[in-house]
């Protein structure tokens, strides 16, 4: 029990440090491209967290989540450009549309076994991609202009510090929401369906309902991320949404560690850094990501989080041991 307490304390400290870094980052970095880059990291944190709800918690896979990212992006583009909706409202509606699409896909797919679900998700992503590429109106290849990220009519992109903070706030909301969901009866139902469908059913859990729900929540996150990204880039181009890009989210989850709040955060951050460092060497990038994924699956299936946990527990053990020793020495002196 005591060890547990120390782990919790350590967690708090790590969380605090990371939080402080995230908050003061724009003070340390003035280069506006870097801030744009970090805003993107935030967007990927949201997307990867969304995939984790499906993959890590509910035990379903999707290799097609880019489709919902695309739906979020194009829906918000159309809503702001043609219906004149405020950007924030439009982003939320776009995310809801992505979630509805996710639920619709999940309805027939929730009965599929893991590997067939993977295939179905790839097919769906290709379908959406081809759809986008073939609708002339969306100017798929030339790209379509998107309104800048703004709230209450203030253009945030005019200074990427604002953009960064806007995204940061939503990252925190997204992580808090995920935390609330996964520790509730809903999260437990997801994990029950993941571990054992048959006895989940026997325990009064409507397996189908919760699978669809996990899909909808997951795609809401990804749709939200896609919509934010569109307003951040101020442009949507079809080749952003090729099915293969879905693997990015999967890599982030595997790398950081699924079934955790902070795994996908770590995964997204590291992924984006590697991606950026190797931006000019795309072949190398793919080889490295491929290698990383294989190594992680083989040697560290729990991702960075499981390694961190192990480290933490060791540290915690050492701390509490040190304290005990100190205490006993103190006692001896008194004698």
């Amino acid at each position: 029990m005591k060890g547990n307490m120390t782990v919790k304390k350590l967690n708090r400290i790590i969380l605090l440090v990371l939080g402080v870094i995230a908050v003061i980052l724009p003070l340390l970095i003035t280069n506006s491209y870097r801030l744009y880059f970090f805003s993107f990291v935030g967007i990927y944190v949201v997307a990867a967290s969304g995939l984790d709800i499906l993959f890590g918690y509910a035990g379903m896979i999707s290799f097609g989540h880019i489709a919902y990212y695309a739906i979020g992006a194009y829906v918000t583009t159309l809503l702001t450009s043609y219906a004149g909706l405020p950007v924030m409202a439009s982003i939320l509606i776009a995310a809801a549309v992505a979630a509805a699409a996710g639920a619709l896909v999940a309805l027939p797919c929730s009965k599929l076994k893991f590997q067939f679900l993977a295939l179905a998700s790839i097919a769906f992503a290709n379908f959406i991609y081809q759809l986008i590429c073939n609708i002339e109106f969306l100017q798929p290849y030339r790209g379509m202009k998107v309104e800048p990220l703004s709230i209450f009519g203030v253009n945030l992109n005019s200074d990427y510090r604002y953009t960064y903070y806007f995204i940061l706030v939503w990252v925190v909301i997204a992580l808090l929401a995920k935390h609330m969901i996964v520790k509730s009866k809903i999260g437990r139902a997801f994990m029950a369906c993941r571990d054992n469908t048959r006895s989940a059913d026997g325990m009064g859990i409507n397996v189908r309902k919760y699978k669809v729900m996990a899909f909808a929540i997951s795609t809401f996150y990804v749709g939200f991320a896609g919509a934010c990204a569109a307003h951040l880039n101020e442009l949507v181009v079809c080749n952003t949404y090729v099915q293969a890009n879905s693997f990015n989210y999967v890599i982030m989850c595997i790398f950081g560690g699924v079934n955790t709040i902070f795994g996908p955060v770590i995964g997204a951050v590291v992924f984006q850094f590697i991606n950026e460092a190797l931006a000019s060497a795309t072949a190398w990038r793919d080889i490295i990501f491929g290698g990383i994924v294989m190594l992680f699956i083989a040697f560290l299936p729990g991702g960075c989080m499981s390694a961190l946990r192990g480290l933490e527990e060791k540290l915690a053990a050492r701390f509490s041991l040190g304290k005990k020793e100190a205490a006993s020495k103190g006692g001896k002196k008194d004698d």
Partner: peptide, 29 residues
Amino acid sequence: NLFHSLSVLDNALIGKHCRTHYGFFAALF
């Protein structure tokens, strides 16, 4: 047919699923 990766308490709590009454938004907030 237990939920092997979950704690003993969580297994029992999953048993409480249909006797615990609150919805998605209650959980969220």
